[in-house]
């Protein structure tokens, strides 16, 4: 339809958002990443000599002193901070204490697994959250309007790890449908992804519901009704499409929350992603690896939000001009 109807204007390709806007967003993102790693850097000092964290509690004093000198912790803090930022910029981080090599490839290697889990969780959550929100805004039966949303909110008030353990108990241990832990591939993905999704279904559902109710009140819906459009077209093109913009922004924010949730979920289910890696790194006092993990997660958060901004501009033409 669009091809014939599109007017004979020169159809130049235009980015949905201006390069300037994108650049601005990217810059804010870089500042956010810098803030995150700086915070971690100084958090390590707030507890005293970081070398103390790295050695066993019963290490002899000369061993502590040796390590302090090797890792450069005896230098003035500003100097250490500059050196640290230098390592971030060049990507040549101090070797991981556990693995004895540059921690960056180790962290990056885990990204695909985390991405698979996060994306699946996000997808399940958005679809289910959208469906529940849609029902709660438009269903005729009051059961369908209130029931699913109520259940979702009930799940939200229970911590992620508890739900994870519950799911493992029911679907892995009792029913044996999915592997309990250390699963690989699709069957192993199901339980952690559902756990993640449950955490953010309610937020999506509520925002989508409010957005839908707003749009249903809008004057252009009356215009669309006056055209006598079939119900499914009215809903798809005029109601849902206009409710997506606000909802997408919340998906972006929730994606960040999910990154945090992923750390817990991955370790509950033994999913070999960046979350599990960072927990292990903390437990092993692998200080360089912790910083790299934080760096990767922060960058991931920034990229996801950038993507959401572009998507939001795609579905919401008013944002483009």
């Amino acid at each position: 339809m669009a091809s014939v109807l599109s007017p004979p204007l020169p159809r130049t390709f235009r980015l949905p958002v201006s390069g300037r806007y994108l650049g601005g967003r990217l810059l804010t993102g870089l500042v956010a990443v810098w803030g995150a790693i700086t915070l971690v850097f100084f958090a390590l000092y707030s507890t005293g000599n970081p070398a103390l964290l790295l050695v066993p509690p019963d290490a002899p004093p000369d061993e502590v002193e040796r390590l302090t000198r090797v890792l450069g912790f005896d230098r003035p803090i500003p100097e250490q901070y500059v050196t640290f930022l230098g390592t971030v910029l060049t990507g040549r981080f101090p070797d991981s204490i556990r693995y004895g090599e540059n921690p960056l490839p180790i962290a990056l290697e885990k990204v695909p697994a985390s991405l698979a889990l996060g994306a699946t969780g996000l997808l399940i959550g958005t679809l289910l959250g959208g469906l529940i929100g849609y029902w709660s805004a438009t269903a005729r039966s009051s059961w369908l309007r209130r029931g699913p949303l109520g259940v979702a909110v009930a799940f939200e008030s229970v911590p992620t790890f508890f739900i994870g353990i519950l799911l493992v108990l029911v679907f892995a241990v009792n029913l044996g449908w999915f592997p309990a832990t250390n699963g690989r591939g699709l069957p192993g993905l199901v339980l952690p992804a559902v756990t993640l999704a449950l955490a953010f279904i309610p937020a999506i559902a509520r925002v989508f519901r409010t957005a839908l109710l707003d749009v249903l009140q809008a004057e252009h819906i009356r215009t669309a009704r006056a055209k006598g459009l079939p119900h499914h077209l009215l809903v798809r093109r005029h109601v849902v499409a206009n409710a997506l913009g606000t909802t997408l922004n919340v998906v972006g924010i929730q994606a960040g929350v999910m990154l945090g949730g992923a750390v817990v979920t991955e370790s509950v289910f033994g999913w070999p992603g960046i979350g599990q890696l960072s927990i292990n790194a903390v437990q092993n006092r692998d200080y360089p690896l912790v910083i790299v993990c934080v760096l990767v997660i922060a960058a991931g958060f920034v990229l996801i939000n950038l993507l959401v901004d572009v998507l939001a501009a795609l579905v919401e033409p008013r944002l483009r001009s």
Partner: peptide
């Protein structure tokens, strides 16, 4: 009274 995220051409076609 017009759908904010639809081009005029499409709204007229509908």
């Amino acid at each position: 009274s017009l759908n904010p995220r639809m081009r005029i051409s499409k709204q007229l076609h509908e």
